[in-house]
């Protein structure tokens, strides 16, 4: 969705009113909201409950390793409006990263968060059943950039062009 400038300004105001700590900017495709981890849950709840956004559909949840920080990107859709809003949060903690679980808001988050925990080691507090999803406990967290793959050479594509 391409928002016009006035739409964007209105949207910024709306989100600022809901979550004062939020930083809003217009991304290449969607409006993006960045919040500190502490206000993640409040922001998610507000975006779902507010009648102007009504983000009742969590399309996608992506765990990301930015090198120094770990983060989660939420793509929020709506069954009423059809717009997509991107919600982002980052945590500088790498040894024991903990974010609030959004399972209570969108039930689909349960598997998404288990996947993010499995592959990136991000823990979600208040998750009803946080277990690894694909791998067993002997693995590290393969999607982290500092993960060293000792055994599997098939993923090493250095010399492929």
């Amino acid at each position: 969705m391409n928002t016009t400038e006035t739409d964007m300004a209105r949207f910024s105001e709306l989100v600022k009113a809901l979550v004062p700590e939020a930083e809003i900017h217009e991304g290449k495709q969607f409006a993006e909201i960045t919040v500190p981890p502490a206000s993640l849950l409040a922001a998610a709840e507000a975006l779902k409950e507010n009648p102007d956004t009504r983000c009742d559909y969590l399309i996608n949840l992506t765990g990301v390793d930015y090198g120094t920080e770990l983060g989660v990107i939420y793509h929020l859709g709506s069954s009423k409006h059809g717009q997509i809003i991107v919600l982002k949060t980052k945590t500088p903690e790498r040894a024991n990263p903990v974010l609030e679980s959004v399972c209570g808001i969108w039930r689909t988050a349960e598997f998404h968060e288990r996947e993010a925990y499995d592959l990136l080691g991000i823990r979600f507090s208040n998750h009803p059943d946080l277990r690894r999803l694909f791998l067993d406990d002997t693995w590290g967290f393969p999607l982290r950039k500092d993960y060293v793959d000792d055994t599997n050479t098939a993923a090493n594509g250095e010399d492929r062009e």
């Binding site: 999803l133 393969p142 999607l143 993923a155 594509g157 492929r160």
Partner: peptide, 16 residues
Amino acid sequence: VGYIHRGIEKMCESIT
């Protein structure tokens, strides 16, 4: 799940 997890997302990071 995970019996045929091939790590496609991980593989994507090292290919074009």
